[in-house]
Nucleic acid binder design. Structure first.
Lengths: 214, 214
DNA sequence: GTTAGCCTCCTCCCTTGGTAGGAGGCGCCG
DNA sequence: CGGCGCCTCCTACCAAGGGAGGAGGCTAAC
């Protein structure tokens, strides 16, 4: 059903997680990585993954830098943080880096399964105490789902439409009669909202489901 | 501005043609060839040509076989026939072989210039009397646009396949286990052969007809 | 043997793309 | 009214893309 990557340096914890997945998400496939380097290698060779579970305690990744690297390498892959740490600041920072959820290691099995299903369904999962503090930074659930394009503003969609045609920032600026710096601003916003890291990826994503575009 | 090849075995005519180009398309560069062999040699060493003007009376080419050979060698290069002959059958056959135009040697200078500009702009030019006879055979521009991908080398196609997936030069280098500078070399060659000026355009072109890719 | 094409890699240089951060104007809504 | 989101534009800075040119190695063809 799903293909997941479990990145954790503790073999025991990894196995436990895999077991939970195997039982709760029957038919799913799990890959494992004991380090960030291994995880990067795995995702490099599997572009059909649905979700990555990333531990924050990996030996070769300083805290959230691992998340940043993973997001950088494969922006299309949803990543959920699995960590013993539960500081609010860390959690919010992870979300800012594009994580789609944050699962404390203390989470009981049943809850864990619910969290995974929720995330695989396109929702964001956060520990209850964070959820209670009201809406986090900017994007709880809606923008992630099927229509990331709908979260774009009119102008951003307009710029994206020109990007899709293969035009450069300069040309778009000329066509829309705005400054190139303004185009850059829009492009940056588009990349952030679409959760990608280059204009090419944005274009591929947009033309894939160009429902909302032109 | 443009880089043209004039292939004709009459020095006088060649010079006249070059003069017309120099005056009408300022900034353009012209290369000359007195035989088909010479022309093939020139195009083999210059993959940045924009257009070739091919005379049908070359000593080492029997009629349209010269066009066939040239098209075979460098499918990405638009070729316009320049000939004294004006038989309808010959003209249609030339178009079938992928020529982008047919200019009678009797064409006055002004008209000649218009024809060249029209062709360089991506149009097809035919002598007025042929144009009047309605639609050309079956393929005005088709054969030209269909083949560019086939002119790529294996490695270039491989690189292009990764570009299409939205990967950066660095990532492609990693995947193919070659240096990033090498990837850049390939990308440059691809852009030149596909006659586009940015990777985005190359990707759009390739994914449009990704028949040969992947 | 020599030649030609391809792949590989390099350096130098410039353009483009993208981020960060700030700023002013405008319109909408509580 | 004040606040908020959006559009606009800016500076400054860094990363990535791309061109020009050269160079070595390799294989296939002549």
């Amino acid at each position: 059903m799903y293909r997941l990557l479990v990145a954790d340096d503790h073999p025991l914890f990894r196995e436990a997680m895999v077991a939970v997945i195997a039982r709760g998400l029957s038919g799913s496939e799990t890959l494992e990585a004991a380090s960030l380097a291994a995880a990067l290698e795995v995702v490099a060779q599997h572009d059909d993954l649905d979700l990555a579970l990333l531990d924050l305690g990996l030996p070769d990744a300083e805290g959230l830098s691992g998340l940043a690297q993973l997001r950088q390498a494969v922006p299309w892959l949803p990543v959920v943080i699995v960590s013993a740490e539960q500081h609010k600041h860390t959690i919010l920072e992870a979300l800012n880096l594009g994580a789609v959820g944050y699962i404390p290691k203390s989470t009981p099995r049943d809850t864990l399964l619910v969290a995974l299903q929720q995330i695989l369904a396109g929702q964001v999962y956060l520990p209850p105490d964070i959820m209670r503090t009201g809406s986090p930074p900017a994007s709880p659930t809606a923008p992630l789902k099927h229509h990331p394009l709908t979260s774009l503003t009119d102008k951003q969609r307009e710029v994206l439409a020109h990007m899709v045609k293969g035009e450069s920032n300069k040309m778009i600026a000329y066509r829309l009669d705005i400054a190139e710096t303004t185009v850059k601003t829009h492009v940056s916003a588009i990349l952030r909202k679409l959760r990608v890291s280059s204009r090419v990826q944005a274009i591929l994503l947009a033309s894939e489901r160009d429902d909302g575009i032109r």
